[in-house]
Computed example of a mutant assay.
Amino acid sequence: MSSPEDITARLKREFDVGEGAFIRQLRPQFIWDTEAFVSLTDAMEAYCREIPRGEEVDLWAAEGFWWVPAYVRKWTSHPGFPREHPSDYYDRAYARLDGLAWWFFTTRPPFTEGHDWGPVRP
């Protein structure tokens, strides 16, 4: 199990578009890397699951959880973006990002206990 510091650093790297981050490949390279997407959503989930939140949240985290779902949807819905996977995969990916944002802002997971959250794959 990762420490809170490791979980936070991993998510910050994703949200700051660090080396290997999903967004870094999405734009300007026009690459939807499925493994990088799983890494992003795993980092977001770990943060929601493991990092205690109270009345206040870190601004960088709030900005990332708000920005990433909207940005990914907008960028990859553009007619010029090469969509190499079935459209239902992208719909499930967008729903996962929306669910993670919901979890972050409400502190309630978007699924019932025992639900198999599992990674989104094509």
Score class of each variant (00 low, 15 high):
T34D: 15
W102R: 11
V68G: 03
A46C: 12
L26Q: 11
G54F: 04
L97R: 08
S77H: 01
R49E: 15
E5K: 01
R27S: 09
G118N: 13
S3F: 00
I7P: 00
Q25H: 10
S39F: 00
T112K: 13
V57H: 04
E14K: 04
A36C: 04
P122Y: 04
A70P: 00
G18Y: 03
P86K: 15
Y94Q: 08
A43M: 01
P52C: 06
W117N: 11
S77A: 10
P52V: 02
P110A: 15
E14V: 01
P4F: 03
E35K: 07
D58E: 14
G80T: 08
A43I: 02
S3H: 00
Y71P: 00
F104S: 07
Y71L: 06
P119G: 12
F65M: 05
Y94D: 13
Q29N: 07
V57T: 13
D16I: 02
R13C: 13
E19R: 06
P109C: 08
I51R: 09
R108H: 07
S2F: 00
F104D: 05
W32D: 13
P82M: 04
E63V: 06
P79R: 03
P119A: 15
A36H: 07
Y71M: 04
T41C: 10
F22C: 12
P28D: 15
Q29C: 02
E19W: 02
E35Y: 00
